[in-house]
Design a protein around this nucleic acid. Structure first.
Lengths: 310, 310
DNA sequence: ATACTTTATTTAAACGTTTAAATAGATGAG
DNA sequence: CTCATCTATTTAAACGTTTAAATAAAGTAT
């Protein structure tokens, strides 16, 4: 592995000059610059991260605090990580994984991000140590989705909207409920507890069970919202498409309406914001990213005329 | 952030002595050792990773090459990463994420691992640069699962076993097919192409379609194997439980038999092996981890007496 | 007591880089 | 021709650690 000294020797200059060329931190004559660059390419020289960091007091690394369990069932952690990695890499940084409950964060990274939204009151307790409070707040809110779903249905004339929530043990579940209630209030509709079913767990057949509970009850509903990928799969399986259904995750599986979560954009934005913050820029206090509703082809669009959401 | 010099000063010794105490690399008298340790705890000193690495030529970091798409549909990348992180952290290492197609790997990490199995011939082409060929081979093979599934069914007297494979576009799909054919051969059963259906894609309703194709064909089958989580969900949804079914992923959703993939153990073992390799130990050429078959309660166990797999 | 060994500690060099300060070389003004 | 000014380059210190080599202090054999 070639060092800066090898480059300097080959180019016949001092290694400080090489550094100046590479960092543009001092004026260098055209002639020497060319000599240096030639030597760099010839040797395939790449600056040594550790050595550079030692001086600059920068690690060129972004830490990711990884919770022991996937906190956010709206978004796929793998996709999120991949996109965060891409964003970091293209800025010359790399991503360092650290368990959220581990001790030493210290000087391993210049800044820390975490996978999760600070909105849910349940979330903080998952972090053993203090949460990364200086993380730029990029928010992607399930309450928005719930609200949007309700609005979509009420704009189309529905008045009694059923909700199959996530079990309350799941972080983030409260946001769905919150958005649902808020939207009902704003639409001037009353809240009927009989229209809300909370499944026992977040699995396929819990969705089926919840759906059957709702259907068997005397509560009539003319629209339905289902949270959670697994639950929704179960519901869609047994649903008779009598009323419009909106699920938490758009899926190509069937023509059901659902949300597309901006996972990639979210990760990307979070990393970019952090980098800006590290550069000393004052960043926006909060950035909101909204899931978008994808209208399906099945049992909904056909029933509703004048429907203009995309 | 306290440095080793601060500790040395407080303890009234040279900073080399501090280093010796902390690394046990030279004999130190009991008295000074105590003085040093007291100073360390008092200042909350933690050795600076970068500085240490510079000298040791070790980064104390393991790189993970992250493919742009999840290669292995048997295993959840998030779980894998989390466990790998835990394993690395407990050994004092951290995990660094790098896109598989990025250029500079160089000196960012002491060793590299990747998510994927080197068994499938399709896999290498996903890596833009050379695959991390010195990665310890910890293998978790879908062919084994397929084979085991066939054996389980044939041991119970089934003779005509249907297979809903993964689409061949998906890396790893070939392993299922391979194991299936191998097991048939070993069981002395002929191969009937009519019993194998390859869905168009790896989605819920492709599973449904594949199942219906198989059911509608004139080919009778007395057992069924379904690969892929999504496909299996679809199949299970429409299956009438007439014949025993084994799916690729055990799931608590319903009492269907399926495999549990040792994701955590896999990640853990891979990291441990790499660390041993870095320490200069000669490690086993290949380590095999096998998925275990979880027998479900539905439509299978009841039909088969004398069933002793767990 | 002197020389030799052993043990505990310190000094100093090294790792690969950046960067402040020093120096050399050229240019221009007096 | 000398001095000051500017520019291009080099020297050397620094970052936080490890570790080989040097030193000091003590113990043991002669």
């Amino acid at each position: 592995m070639a060092t800066i000294k090898d480059v300097a020797q080959l180019a016949g200059v001092s290694f400080a000059t090489v550094s100046y060329v590479l960092n543009d931190s001092m004026p260098v004559s055209e002639a020497t610059r060319n000599k240096v660059l030639a030597a760099v390419t010839k040797l395939g020289y790449q600056p040594h991260r550790q050595g550079r960091n030692l001086q600059r007091q920068r690690t060129l690394t972004i830490g990711v605090l990884l919770p022991q369990a996937n906190l956010l069932c709206e978004v796929d952690l793998a996709t999120w990580l991949l996109e965060a990695t891409n964003a970091a890499t293209s800025a010359g940084y790399s991503l360092l994984l650290q368990p959220a409950d581990s001790q030493a964060r210290g000087d391993l990274a210049d800044g820390w991000i975490s996978f999760g939204t600070p909105l849910d009151p349940q979330l903080p307790q998952v972090w053993a140590l203090a949460p990364p409070c200086d993380q730029p707040a990029v928010l992607c809110d399930a309450a928005f989705a719930a609200q949007r779903a309700v609005e979509t249905l009420t704009h189309s004339g529905m008045r009694r909207i059923g909700l199959i929530t996530l079990p309350r043990s799941i972080p983030g579940s409260a946001r769905w409920y919150l958005g649902y209630r808020r939207a009902l209030r704003r639409a001037g509709l009353g809240f009927d507890p009989g229209l809300v079913v909370e499944p026992a767990a977040n699995r396929f057949h819990d969705g089926v069970a919840a759906y059957e509970t709702l259907a068997a009850s005397e509560n009539d509903y003319d629209g339905l919202i289902v949270c959670g990928h697994q639950l929704a799969t179960g519901v869609v399986m047994v649903d008779h498409a009598k009323v419009p259904v909106i699920v938490s995750h758009s899926s190509s599986q069937r023509g059901i309406s659902g949300f597309r979560w901006p996972t990639e954009l979210w990760a990307h934005t979070l990393v970019r914001k952090l980098l800006q913050q590290l550069d000393g820029a004052a960043i926006a206090h909060r950035t909101w990213l909204n899931p978008s509703l994808v209208i399906g082809s099945l049992g909904f669009k056909e029933d509703l005329d004048g429907f203009n959401y995309v």
